[in-house]
Design a protein around this nucleic acid. Structure first.
Lengths: 225, 225
DNA sequence: TTTTAGCTTCAGTATTTCTTCATATTTATA
DNA sequence: TATAAATATGAAGAAATACTGAAGCTAAAA
C-alpha cells in the first residue's frame, strides 16, 4: 500500500512512517498543507493520513483539494480534537474515517486496512478479475484456482495493475507506487522491465491470459476486456 | 483474551479493565455507543461487556449492529435494570449472558470465561486444528496426541497464529500481540526470529506439518489447509 | 544462596529478492 | 528498409531479510 502522512509533529510523523514501512508499505510524509498539496498534485496514494491542525492552515483544505481534483485517495483524519462537529465536518468533505489523538499505531493501521479493503475488495476480501483472484489477508494470488507465488514487488505491481485495469499506467507511476518518491531512476527503467517480465512469466505459466500490454513509449496497461 | 468494555461509569469501567488486564488479557474500553461502534467496526474481540444505559442510546444497538455485520463477538450484558423484560430482550437480540449490577468482578470473569469456552472450544475445552490440539484452561498443547511443552511466548504465538490462520501476520503485529504496543524495536526482530525458530522446532519434532510459513519482507502465515 | 528456565542479544550463515548489466528483440519513424 | 530508441530477457552480482546456535542476562524456583 502507498500512503502519505500529513502531520506537523515530527515524532508522531516519523513513528507512523516507520511503522508502515516496516510492514512493506511505501509511506511518505510531509509537515504542512502546501507540501501536501504539492505531493498530491503529482503522486497517487492509496490512503492519506491527515492531521487537521497544520502550521499553514486546516487539513480540511486537503479534502477540498482532492474533491476538486476528482482524485480518489482515501483519507483518514488524525486529529487532537474530538468534537463531534469536527468529525462530522471531516466526514462530510469526504474523509473515510476519523481517529482522535492519542491513538495506538495498531489501531491506525487496522483502520487504514479497513478503508482500503472497503474501497478495493468485495465482501470476501477477494479481488477477482476473470481467472485471477487475489486474497488480501492471506496475500495470495490464484490463477485458475491454482496458487502462484509472487514476490513483494510482483504482488504490489499486480494489485496496482488490477486496481487500475483498463487504464494506461506510466512507468513513472509504477516506480512511484512501488518505490516511493525518493527513488531516483534518471530514466533507467531496467528494474521495472525485470519485474514486469517476472510477473508476466508467472501469470502466463499459470495459463492466465496475456493481460499485461506494453504501451510503447508510455508504460503498461492491464487489459480489461 | 481480547475484550471490549462499553460502560459510561468511569469507576466501574476502570475496575473491570484493570481486573482483566492483570490476568494477561487485552481489555479495551469506551464510554458511549458511537465509540463502541467505531471500535467494533475495526477490531475483533473475543467478548464484549455491554452496559445498556449509555449516554447516547441503549446498548441494544450494539447487539443489532453485531448481528447486521455478522460479527461473532460474544456479548455479556451488564445492566442496572434487572427486569425480566430487559433480560429477555437482550438475550433475544443475541446476548450470551446477562449480569445485574452490582456484581463481583470474580463473577463477571467467571461468566466471561464460561462464554468464551462455550464459543471457542469443543466440549472438551480444546481448540483443535488438524493434529494440533490446544487446551486453554490448562495452557497445554498436544500434537498427534502427544503433549509438547511450550514457553509462554511460544504458546501465545501459537494461539495467535491459529486464531488468525490463513492470514499474513506482520512482525509488528506479532510484537504488539506478544509484548504490547510500547515495545520499541526499531527494525530489530531478532527475538521474533528466535521464538519462531523454537516454536517451529518443537512442532516439527512432534511430527506436526510445517504450517508456519515465512512471508519474505512481511511476516508469517499459519497455513490453513 | 544456587539453580534453572526462559528471554534476549549477537555474530555468522543461508536464503530470497532486488537490481544491474549485457545482449536480443521489438517498435516507431525517417 | 534502415536506424535509433524503447522494451524484453537471462544471468549474475548486490542487498535485504531470515535462520541458527551459542552465550549472556534476568527473575523465579529450589
Amino acid at each position: 500500500m502507498k500512503l502519505l502522512v500529513i502531520e506537523d509533529e515530527q515524532g508522531i510523523r516519523e513513528n507512523i512512517v516507520n511503522y508502515f514501512n516496516e510492514d512493506g508499505n511505501i509511506c511518505e510524509s510531509c509537515d504542512c498543507l502546501s507540501a501536501a498539496i504539492d505531493k498530491l498534485a503529482v503522486f497517487d496514494y492509496d490512503c492519506v493520513l491527515l492531521d487537521i491542525g497544520l502550521p499553514d492552515g486546516e487539513g480540511f483544505a486537503v479534502l477540498e483539494y482532492l474533491q476538486k481534483q476528482i482524485k480518489n485517495e482515501a483519507v483518514l483524519i488524525i486529529s487532537a480534537r474530538n468534537s463531534l462537529n469536527d468529525k462530522l465536518k471531516g466526514l462530510n468533505v469526504g474523509a473515510d474515517d476519523y481517529l482522535t489523538k492519542p491513538f495506538h499505531l495498531a489501531e491506525l493501521k487496522a483502520r487504514v486496512v479497513a478503508i482500503y479493503r472497503r474501497r478495493t475488495f468485495n465482501s470476501n476480501n477477494n479481488l477477482v478479475f476473470n481467472e485471477i483472484s487475489i486474497n488480501l489477508p492471506g496475500r495470495t494470488v490464484q490463477v485458475n484456482q491454482i496458487q502462484i507465488t509472487l514476490t513483494r514487488k510482483e504482488y504490489d505491481m499486480l494489485l496496482y495493475f488490477i486496481a487500475n485495469k483498463g487504464k494506461v499506467i506510466s512507468k513513472n507511476a509504477i516506480a512511484e507506487h512501488l518505490w516511493g518518491d525518493e527513488m531516483d531512476m534518471h530514466n533507467n527503467f531496467d528494474f521495472i522491465y525485470t519485474h514486469i517480465k517476472n510477473l508476466r512469466k508467472k501469470l502466463l505459466d499459470a495459463n492466465s491470459n496475456d493481460y499485461l500490454k506494453s504501451i510503447y513509449g508510455i508504460g503498461y496497461k492491464f487489459m480489461a476486456e
